[in-house]
Amino acid sequence: MRWRFKTDLTENDVTPEEVFRARRRFMAAAAGAAAVGVLAGRTAAASRSDAVLKDEPTRYEDATTYNNFYEFGTRKSDPARLAGQLTVRPWTVRIDGLVDRPLELSLDDLLKEMEIEERIYRFRCVEGWAMVVPWNGFMLRDLLRKAGVRKEARYVAFETLLRPSEMPGQKGRLLEWPYREGLRLDEAMHPLTLMATGMYGKPLPKQNGAPLRLVVPWKYGFKSIKSVVRITLTEKQPPTTWNMMAPDEYGFYANVNPNVDHPRWSQATERLLGSGLFAGSRPTRMFNGYDEVAELYRGMDLRKYF
């Protein structure tokens, strides 16, 4: 039987589209708001104070202008400002390593062959902010099965595009480029693990990792590698960028865990993007609220394997 995606986010957590649009209209200070606009605007305003700390999808504008994508610079606004120059078509992703059939697939192949669905996921950055994003994408495991995972394979390694001419951040040495990430095979095969090709029903914006990125909702955001060009099945745990840079701060697992603090700040709470100056923070949940992955780590000391 086909695995069905389950989520504790209900319809009620999703802002009705008219409210969404009304709010945007409201923000733009459009004159002569239609009756529905006024009504919806009021609803949005009334629910804002208590809804801000609930899982309401982050505004598209917020999710696309506040990004960590060091290939384009270290400021949150750099990716939105500079990613425009990135060429995302043609785009090829290579699946190699311990697979039966190494593949080279274009983005169009993927969009045609994979089953694209929408998933609304919480997203928690290691820095202590969070958002809720409706992604469009396919399960990584479907792609890996297409290539045929050999039984010696234990890990999956990912690589971001290396193209300093279009990614100015790669001219600096802050990180060792290309950006690399990795998952244990069972994490990669978990049905929650998504390869996103879009968000909010639109193609993935370049600052959010176009045209193809990983989304692992129960791990800190840096695990969800952007603009992926290579997926390699390996026997050994692959080196991963932030872990190489500061192994005491960024573990290989990087599961969202309110009980294991980052050495420099607490992970107990998170600020929800778009919640305003006075909203404060909300408690961070174990595995970012995705309890169904707990079984992957049964018996592991999550303080040691952070």
Binding site: T65, S77, M131, R271, L273, L277
Partner: peptide, 15 residues
Amino acid sequence: QALTGALGPDPVRTL
């Protein structure tokens, strides 16, 4: 700026 939203989606941190 933080009050009016000009500091972006994470005004506390930015301020």
